[in-house]
Design a protein around this nucleic acid. Structure first.
Length: 588
RNA sequence: CGGGGCGUAGCCCAGUGGCUAGGGCACCUGCUUUGGGAGCAGGAUAUCGAAGGUUCGAGUCCUUUCGCCCCGACCA
């Protein structure tokens, strides 16, 4: 590619809003341009890098038996009604009517479409296991796109779907994905960790997320440096300390201006763990078969030294969504915000009590009366409710496995794998006949990788103060040929020779000053830079530098530049290949 | 959806209610220059996001609206 003909140009300054390094460079180097909120165009460099990532994914998916297909972005709503997700998913999924008024959706994932496909193709156990995948555009109308390509509305995703006769088969395909994903990310050069995850809207049971740890991430990951326990905070557990003692008699005390646990503990001169706090939320419950919605007030009771993890609470009550309750809604159930507890609330309130409270005694709780608290409240004796773990794990908490302190980090989810089991096949009647002629639902798994997000993470990980420095496996091109000489003939010859040898060359043939050319080369960051200058040409040589080590410079002979470049490319590829991570999944 | 910020040339930004809306970068022409974002001279480019209003007069004040960004809610 001649730079003089390149469609995109580099930007000297970062466009407004480019707040992370990776995002800034992707814009400035001409990889991407924004069209709208969470909507981006891939320019030649961005498209090329994306295709390389996709190729890595294809090779690894094919290696575990995946067959590539392409399903439509537009789905008839009928199949989404069959699984209930037409109703349970909120406005994140865009809907419209076709010309004859039929309900249609823009698919945000393809469990429904692939299950519909599978029920037509799979009839016998003899046909299983199967694995299909696609690399396709998704539209999710996220209420708040942000951080460049990290959280967008339109994006490319690799999604694969496995079909098996039993759990054992699913475990096998799941384990193969688990391993293949590590190969994919490490071939691209992205360091990831795998964490136990919440299955959220996908349903199903076992799931893992692949996380790139970075401050730009939106997920909080809880890890244990001592024993390698890892989990998304949404599901992370920790070893709690309980404070049990003999139950004492409840006593009402005056506690003016004590609406927070801090104020209360300070006023009564007690520790925060001797209190119980109430968190008021309203849960929406949607009937999967007809879409009818019902709202219920939920009170989460947790010990004062802990915080509620709303995701855990939502799972505990099986709500579709939660929102903070309005004060009127709380009062209507006989409770008082700021001085609230589950004691004396109406029967229709869902009370969920964290085990930290259930297993501790004589906690101070709200009296549901302005300015008063109750001493020595005890779960079971003074109020009832469902006991569950709804506490949020934080850095410093004790590891559930080994008891050592946990660490909290930020991460970006670049991939995930789910065991769906029969969540979709049962609803959509996707069955096979076993050896005995009995119809059984197909056991399914679903596995995703965000391609654009992966590129964004790579840009974040492989950049310095001058620009990008993507690994050779995903860099848009391999060699940046910078010509600083007046006589273009030598440069042309080398460019042609390299190109004919199959090397991806970006040839800077522009009439620009050396400074401009070097600055652009730094910004775009192709792995190998070959500079043609009078200095070295006099000695029959060209200067060579690696983008990830601009300090060091070496030279190739003008006559041998093709062979030497080819072997350097091979060497860089081998280095990456030697870093491929092989990790096995152990189901325990 | 709540809170905040910003919309002025391709990009970054300046612009007390007052004359013909400025600068830097980028762009075009010519000359010079060619190892780290060059120099000189000349030039083109804006319905100041949109609509309405106040005013003798609006980029500037008011109202409405659209878009983008940030925080929160939200989020496979």
């Amino acid at each position: 590619m001649r730079m003089s003909k390149l469609f995109s140009k580099t930007l000297r300054e970062a466009p407004n809003g480019a707040d992370s390094k990776g995002y800034e460079y992707l814009l400035r180097a001409g990889f991407i341009r924004q069209l709208g909120a969470g909507i981006f165009t891939l320019l030649p460099f961005g498209f090329s890098a994306t295709k390389k990532i996709e190729q890595v994914i294809r090779e690894e998916m094919n290696a575990i038996g995946g067959q590539e297909i392409l399903m439509p972005l537009v789905n008839p709503a009928d199949i989404w009604k069959e699984t209930g997700r037409f109703y349970s998913i909120d406005r994140e999924m865009s809907r419209f009517n076709d010309r004859s008024g039929r309900d249609m959706v823009l698919a945000m994932t393809h469990e429904e479409a692939v299950t519909d496909l599978a029920r037509g193709e799979i009839d016998s156990y003899k046909r299983l296991p199967l694995l299909v995948y696609q690399i396709q555009t998704k539209w999710r109308d996220d209420p708040r796109p942000r951080a460049g390509l990290i959280r967008v509305r339109e994006f490319t995703m690799k999604d694969s779907y496995s079909f098996d006769i039993d759990q054992e088969g699913l475990d096998k395909q799941y384990a193969e994905h688990y391993k293949a994903y590590f190969r994919i990310f490490s071939r691209c050069g992205l360091p990831v960790i795998v964490v136990g995850a919440d299955s959220g809207m996908m349903g199903g049971k076992i799931s893992h997320e692949y996380m790139y740890l970075s401050p730009i991430g939106e997920d909080t990951i809880i890890t244990c440096p001592a024993c390698n326990y890892t989990a998304n905070r949404q599901v992370a557990t920790f070893k709690k300390t309980y404070y049990s003692e003999e139950m004492k008699k409840t006593e009402k005390v005056l506690t003016p201006d004590c609406k927070t646990i801090e104020e209360l503990a300070a006023f009564l001169k007690i520790d925060k763990h001797q209190t119980a706090k109430a968190v008021f939320l309203v849960g929406t419950f949607i009937n999967d078969t007809n879409g009818e919605e019902e709202e219920k007030l939920i009170v989460g009771i947790i010990r004062g030294d802990l915080e509620v993890e709303e995701n855990k609470l939502q799972n505990a009550v099986k709500a579709n969504s939660l929102r903070p309750a309005h004060p009127e809604e709380i009062v209507a159930k006989n409770m008082v915000p700021g001085y609230g507890s589950a004691i004396g609330c109406t029967d229709d309130v869902l009370v969920v009590v964290d085990d930290s409270v259930a297993k501790s005694n004589n906690l101070v709780a709200g009296a549901n009366e302005d300015g008063y608290h109750l001493l020595n409240t005890n779960f079971g004796r003074d109020y009832q409710g469902e006991v569950a773990d709804i506490a949020s794990a934080s850095g410093g908490h004790a590891c559930p496995e080994c008891g050592k302190p946990l660490v909290a980090s930020k991460g970006v989810e670049v991939g995930n794998i789910f065991q769906l089991n029969t969540r979709y096949s049962e609803n959509m009647n996707c069955t096979y006949q076993d050896e005995n002629g009995v119809r059984r639902p197909v056991i399914m798994g679903s596995y995703g990788i965000g391609v654009g997000r992966l590129l964004a993470c790579l840009a974040e990980n492989y950049s310095d103060e001058k620009g990008l420095s993507l690994p050779i496996s995903v860099a848009p091109m391999q060699v940046h040929l910078v010509s600083l000489i007046k006589d273009a003939q030598v440069a042309e010859t080398i460019y042609q020779a390299l190109t004919q040898a199959g090397v991806d060359v970006l040839y800077d043939d522009r009439k620009e000053s050396a400074g401009v050319k070097f600055a652009d080369a730094d910004l775009i960051g192709l792995p190998i830079r070959i500079t043609l200058g009078n200095r070295s040409l006099k000695e029959g040589k060209v200067e060579v530098k690696l983008r990830n080590n601009l300090e060091e410079s070496f030279s190739f002979g003008v006559d041998t530049v093709v062979e030497e470049t080819l072997s350097l490319i091979a060497k860089l590829k081998n280095e990456l290949a030697s870093q491929i991570v092989e990790n096995e999944w152990q189901n325990n």
